[in-house]
Simulated assay, not measured.
Amino acid sequence: MSDQEAPAPAPAPGPVPRPVRGAARCAVAALALAALAWAARAVWHVRLAMAGQPASGPPDQGGGQHRPLTALEDSYHLVSSVGAAVTVVCALAFLAWLDRVRDNARALSGAEPRYGYPWLFLGWIVPVVNLWIPRGIVADAHRSVFPDRRLPAVVNWWWALWLAGLAGGVGLIHADPTDEVIARAYTGVLPLLAADVVIVAAAGTAALMIRTLTTAQQQRMDEAARPGA
């Protein structure tokens, strides 16, 4: 037998970045639908305010008692339900994009993400930490690939609008009950309309953020894929 040492095994190949433009298009389309859904809610808020509260009072009479809904109130429930369904689709599309961007950042930079995988989902719903972790995940994915660049300002604009939308009580998560929102439309619609405008603006800013970060990451992936890169 030969006394020569066996050759060292070749290092395992690292993770390969995956195309991100398709996930970005899906997320942007879902955000556009969500913006339309919330714009429709704003229209119904105005309709409720103009109609005025019925003489029988708000839908929720207190003590577990609810009066029959008017046709307008019933249609608002439908608009609200459709908006909630669209919001779920939007959230899934956004998370799919963020997961792809996060994985690609690890493949391109060789650095582990600052936040573990469970925070990709828990970061949105755990109180207190949901005020900064989702933005942190987005910022970390960009900075790990482009450590010499400033974080695009659109990321901060998106996050500020998102937090402002949550504070309105009709945000994309932790929303008030529909009957309570109807009562608020009767008694003071302006805060509701302000929240609607903020949420629509947040959706538009999120779409711009997705396009900005996706374009930058895809360009870096194209550069890495060129021969001799």
Rank of each mutant, 00 (worst) to 15 (best):
Ser2Asp: 14
Gln4Gly: 09
Ala12Met: 15
Arg18Ser: 15
Arg21Glu: 11
Val28Gln: 07
Ala29Cys: 13
Ala34Glu: 07
Ala34Tyr: 07
Ala35Ser: 10
Ala35Glu: 12
Leu36Ile: 14
Leu36Met: 12
Ala40Thr: 15
His45Leu: 15
Arg47Ile: 08
Gly52Lys: 13
Gln61Lys: 12
Gln65Thr: 11
Gln65His: 10
His77Lys: 13
Leu78Glu: 15
Val88Asp: 06
Cys90Phe: 10
Phe94Asp: 12
Val101Thr: 09
Arg106Tyr: 03
Ala107Trp: 00
Ala107Asp: 00
Leu108Ala: 03
Leu108Val: 02
Leu108Gln: 02
Ala111Thr: 04
Ala111Lys: 07
Pro113Ser: 01
Pro113Ile: 01
Tyr117His: 15
Leu122Gln: 05
Trp124Gln: 03
Val129Ala: 00
His142Trp: 05
Phe146Gly: 02
Pro147Ala: 02
Asp148His: 14
Leu151Arg: 08
Val154His: 03
Val155Ile: 02
Ala160Ile: 01
Leu161Met: 04
Leu163Pro: 04
Asp176Cys: 04
Glu180Met: 03
Ala194Leu: 11
Asp196Ile: 08
Val197His: 14
Ala201Pro: 05
Ala202Thr: 02
Leu208His: 06
Ile210Cys: 07
Thr212Asp: 03
Leu213His: 04
Ala216Leu: 00
Arg220Gln: 02
Ala224Ile: 01
Gly228Lys: 09
